[in-house]
Design a protein around this nucleic acid. Structure first.
Lengths: 178, 178
DNA sequence: CGTAGCATGTAAGTTGTTACATGATTCG
DNA sequence: CGAATCATGTAACAACTTACATGCTACG
């Protein structure tokens, strides 16, 4: 059975409303985009699989001109699958970090190489914080008093915590490096 | 050309001394283990590829009884490849987080589900901190005044920073939830 | 005598990315 | 009129995991 992980991300997004593959990509890019990305090359095949498995159903909007819009929505089986996944414990995996790998072997190159990597990392975290601020605004604008909002904010504040900690580490490490 | 990422991890480890596939696994598990993991199913094929590509060379230790030990060491070409990789900018990718995905959709289930996920995450970070402390000790014991030690410590302190920030976030979020 | 550690590797399957292929509409 | 957006999908490849297959030695 294909795409265990992506499957649930898409099911979750579809729980927010019926959507096309294109819509899923758009919505995911800002809502869960800072900790979960999907490509079209993954989205379309997985939607097909899940339709066959009866987890979602598809309706076709006839639009004049443009290609047809395939709108997917959860079936009861899909909703059940999603809830079961939610309750299962998180599998803990060590995410690979190219940055840390390069720093670990930093002694092989001039210090400036490591300094550059760290400076770049700092910059990216600054940018991330700016994006989080945008998302926060958008959430306040578009999702006023949705009961799910606290959960969405939780993931945002996680990102913010990590980014802030990363920046502090960058500053301290850069100063130690000289 | 196979295994772009693992390639460099293994080249890096081999820069610390000639080693067998088995040794690479052992060494990596504690040295870079908290941000980089390799499986044997990846290590052995990649070693084969890199040998053919001339980045490493292999010598066979005849041991009585036990299977032969294949000890790999860097060639000048391998060293060059490693140095070029070190200097290239880090590709930034969004690591997927099953935890955050589950929390994002937490509104679909009882709050206790999310609370459990967070509590478990907290526990894992506590354990991680304990492991980092062990590595720190081991580093002091075995690598007294190695000039590369500051770089190794850098990656450790990164892990500690992240783990501490994660725990603070867990505490705060749990208190807000309940 | 059983279990853990030493030691190497393969095969099959899963998961995911990138590039390709297509083509209309809308806005500046 | 060119670029961005809407919109769907496939094919080829890349990367990685898991389970399997083998078998010795040292220790308790």
């Amino acid at each position: 059975m294909r795409s265990n992980q992506s499957r649930f991300a898409l099911l979750g997004l579809l729980s927010m409303g019926a959507m096309s593959g294109y819509d899923l990509k758009q919505l995911s890019s800002w809502s869960v985009g800072h900790f979960w990305r999907e490509s079209y090359g993954q989205i379309y095949p997985v939607l097909k699989d899940m339709t066959q498995a009866g987890l979602i159903r598809r309706k076709t909007d006839k639009t004049t001109g443009r290609p047809e819009r395939h709108v997917y929505s959860l079936t009861p089986a899909g909703r059940k699958e999603l809830n079961q996944w939610l309750a299962r414990p998180v599998v803990d995996e060590v995410p690979r970090s190219e940055l840390l790998l390069k720093l670990f072997f930093g002694g092989l190159a001039p210090v400036s190489v490591s300094q550059d990597h760290i400076a770049e990392h700092r910059k990216r975290n600054t940018q991330a914080l700016a994006e989080y601020a945008e998302i926060r605004k958008r959430l306040d604008r578009e999702c006023g008093n949705d009961p799910r909002k606290p959960f969405w904010l939780m993931t945002l504040s996680y990102g913010e915590s990590m980014a802030n900690a990363a920046m502090q580490w960058c500053d301290q490490t850069l100063s130690e490096l000289g």
